[in-house]
């Protein structure tokens, strides 16, 4: 299990770095797909079967298709010849990123949970995979707080669909 986690984590981090380093947006998109897949497998190691399936369908499927489609539509597949005005910002950005990861990791390394059990030794819950039925029963249970956010998200998605069509119209 530890070996599986190490393998998946390495794939995710390496592909994430390669995604940022690439100049070509199509290659970046393909590395992002690899990150999404390794994250889906990590969700499976956390017994979240439904989330893993949704991750593959929504992120690695729908959202990445949208990205590739826009890259092709805007003809951005070739690297630019324009001078990069952001060159001095690059080093600064990498430096800020290193500081951020240092702070986060050092905080997590010394973190303790409320009941003073060390987070690094917390035992996971033992139970079966959380599938679609558990998620659905919780989502549509009126005594739980998730029904109203569900309705709000439906309106949000409608607004986003209408807004995307409006923005991409010929004349704006």
């Amino acid at each position: 299990m530890t070996l599986l986690f190490a393998l998946l984590a390495t794939i995710a981090v390496v592909c994430g770095i390669l995604m940022v380093v690439q100049e070509n947006p199509v290659r970046s998109a393909l590395f992002l797909v690899l990150v999404m897949f390794s994250l889906a497998l990590l969700y499976l190691t956390l017994n979240a079967a439904f989330i893993a399936a949704v991750q593959v369908v929504v992120y690695a499927g729908a959202i990445m298709v949208l990205f590739i489609f826009v890259i092709m539509l805007l003809n951005l597949g070739t690297p630019e010849a324009m001078p990069n005005k952001l060159k001095p910002q690059t080093l600064l950005g990498i430096f800020a990123g290193l500081i951020l990861v240092g702070v986060l990791v050092s905080m997590l390394a010394g973190a303790h949970s409320k009941d003073s059990a060390d987070l690094s030794t917390t035992a996971p819950l033992t139970r079966g995979f959380v599938g679609a039925s558990e998620i659905g029963m919780t989502l549509f249970d009126p005594s739980k707080p998730w029904l109203f956010p569900f309705e709000v998200v439906s309106i949000l998605l409608l607004v986003a669909a209408v807004g995307a069509v409006m923005l991409a119209k010929k004349r704006i």
Binding site: M1, T2, L108, L119, S120, T121, P124
Partner: peptide, 12 residues
């Protein structure tokens, strides 16, 4: 059920 031996901290 699969019991992982990986700690919560590793995921975080």
């Amino acid at each position: 059920s699969v019991v992982p031996s990986v700690s919560l901290n590793s995921y975080l």
